[in-house]
């Protein structure tokens, strides 16, 4: 690990000031991702601003009936929070599907939002990677790419976004609140992460010194919801495919649907095309299939990840089918 300056920030103002004063600084919260990357020399910040003691750990109800979640809330604590468990069970399911218990005890909401890909070539400095070192190439395209993305990729990057939590947040229309020395602003989650295009090293729309302070969830919908994750082993494994879905059926017709995918794209993937096809359609197997097909039509596969298209289709259909059944029982 390279030497770095260390600033322990007592409050948000100090934290964002320190980051503004030291270009290339990184905020350190749970450290579960950043420290790994620093040990691998993938991240080489000159300054680390420790934000782990900032008072951003509360969960509050908003006036509109939603929740505001402090960015330093630990993943475990958020998953267990009564208001999250009861009103946003899909989020609790997604959190508990991620990482391991030890990591969830350390990892924070803000850090999870900014988690970087687990593409093995991103971590391996001996191989080319446009995300790690722009302009060097991509070893994954012709390499071991079983876990890589099929949607939203570009010629320069096929890495997936690794988070489970973000997939649920995407489906829930979360809004991220950020702060820097100039003030605060709100970013819909859908606009937080970028697609790789020609600049896979730019992963979010945040300025380097902007700090995520909270995440706001709109009021919960009554519709049944679920987070479903398909992976190799049953814990401590990234999603091959995951689906966050909420489905409201009225008189046999889809009145409202929220659908987001994980493990298949460079960002938490809101399945807008599938939602468009489904809304107003009969809540049938055929509709679910058509929706999945519409979403996956633009999929581009590599040698090792062809299976993900069919796996995503089946997982989407199975999840919607289960939700439709659950809704009809209620």
């Amino acid at each position: 690990m390279k030497d770095f300056a260390y600033v322990a920030a007592p409050d948000v103002a100090t934290a964002v000031r320190a980051a503004a004063d030291a270009p290339g600084a990184r905020f350190l919260a749970g450290g579960t991702n950043l420290v790994d990357l620093m040990r691998q020399h993938v991240e080489r910040p000159d300054t680390v601003v420790d934000i782990s003691r900032l008072p951003l750990t509360s969960v509050e109800e908003t006036k509109s009936g939603g929740l505001r979640i402090g960015a330093l809330m630990r993943n475990s604590d958020l998953a267990a929070h009564p208001l999250v468990r009861t009103r946003y069970p899909m989020l609790t399911q997604a959190l508990l599907a991620g990482a391991s218990a030890q990591l969830r005890n350390m990892a924070t909401v803000g850090g999870n939002l900014l988690q970087r890909t687990r593409c093995p070539y991103f971590y391996d400095r001996a191989t080319p990677c446009h995300k790690r070192e722009p302009g060097t190439g991509c070893a994954a395209v012709g390499g071991f790419n079983r876990s890589h993305a099929i949607l939203g990729t570009s010629a320069s990057c096929v890495a997936t976004h690794p988070s489970d939590m973000c997939v649920a947040l995407a489906a829930l229309d979360a809004v991220v609140e950020v702060e820097d020395v100039r003030g605060t602003r709100r970013i819909p989650l859908a606009d937080l992460h970028r697609l790789p295009g020609d600049t896979p090293h730019l992963e979010t729309t945040l300025a380097p010194d902007e700090l995520i302070t909270s995440v706001e969830l709109p009021a919960p919908a009554a519709a049944p919801s679920r987070y479903r994750k398909v992976r190799d082993r049953a814990s401590f494994a990234f999603a091959l495919v995951s689906v966050a879905a909420a489905l409201e059926v009225t008189d046999g017709t889809v009145a409202a649907v929220r659908l987001a995918l994980g493990g298949v794209a460079p960002k938490p993937w809101r399945a807008v095309e599938a939602e468009r096809v489904l809304t107003g359609a009969p809540a049938t197997e055929e509709s679910f299939r058509a929706a999945a097909d519409a979403e996956l039509a633009p999929a581009v596969t590599l040698d090792g990840n062809e299976f993900k298209v069919e796996l995503a289709r089946r997982t989407i259909v199975a999840t919607l089918r289960d939700l439709a059944r659950e809704g009809s029982r209620a």
Binding site: A126, G143, R233, S235
Partner: peptide, 20 residues
């Protein structure tokens, strides 16, 4: 991949977990 070990970590090397 070309002689380079790709998954030599406990996260990437998928040993079965207790739940498997």
């Amino acid at each position: 991949d070309q002689g380079q070990l790709i998954n030599g970590t406990l996260l990437d090397y998928q040993l079965p977990s207790i739940r498997d």
